[in-house]
Amino acid sequence: MSGEILIQQPGNAVVTDLGRTRGPRFGLPVNGALDQYSARAANILAGNLDNHPLVEITALDFRMKATTDILIAVTGAPLTLTVGGRPSSQWEPVSVRAGETVSIRGIHRGLRAYLAIHGSIEAETLLGSVAPDTVVGFGLQLKEGTRLLTRRSVGPVRQPYFDLPLFRLGLDRPRMDSDLLVDVTDGPDVAEFGESGELLFTSEYAVSGRSNHIGLRLGGELPERTSSGEVLSRGVPVGAVEVPSREELLVLHRGRGVTAGYPVLAVVTSTGLDVLAQARPGDKVRFRKTTVAEATAAHRRSRAHLETLRESVNTVFGLLGIGCRPQWQDLPVAACS
């Protein structure tokens, strides 16, 4: 049985996934969830595949109504989550009954939240991904009244005693502060900045309000290019740190144009990009130099946490019959520890 939700207050929300990895070859940015860790975690907690379509909510309050029984998980920036008026836990699976309203309010630290629904969401794809691409005009931006179909409905899963939270999966939640520490590796063009490149690690930068999914603009002391002359357009990686003007540092994120003609001073690591995805205008950013080997190790450690989580979720969902017995009712006491 499929499920359905109705968007009541869209705020700033889109349906996305982990990105269009085939895009860059055709001149399209990868796009997709900016905080990849939180997006993966939401899908795992909802019993989905990591790359399933889910909702990315940026900064503003969001409200939707389930018109069938569903199971959701909300991750990302800290916020106030209520389901049918009851306060509910973020970073855990949450059962929603038909007719109940899911409300997400008060994103004050961090910027982006992720809402995954068991059975994922039906949406159109472009080059194999549902991720919006604002440049080519593709994607599903949610509006008041949008109806989203999920491939599965999940009957109510509730702790029969005192209505305590059912799940305590205990996932590592990323810290979200207004002082961000972002790891970078040397960029391929670091030599073009001479000694001024070190400024990147000794200065503090402020996130500009003109930042978005294409790139973050940061004010502060700027390294200067010592070489001059036209650079031929080249493919630039997500995370590239450039100094295109005298006013701001530019850090490219997942919506970046795939080619550019500016030298790349440094590149933000995969885990660092998740940190920047949660940066709010006015937040302070410091950069820390690392190596590709260390960055890869950190990335793999973080993914290992998610793999452990996946095992716990599979075990619990198996016990509860989620995904195999859609009409499951209240739990036997033994299943709730």
Partner: peptide
């Protein structure tokens, strides 16, 4: 993931979890 070739360079993108 793929490659982005331009004039004299190509950016090769990969998933560092699956391949080093």
């Amino acid at each position: 993931h793929g490659a982005v070739p331009t004039y004299d360079s190509v950016l090769v993108e990969f998933d560092p979890i699956l391949v080093s």
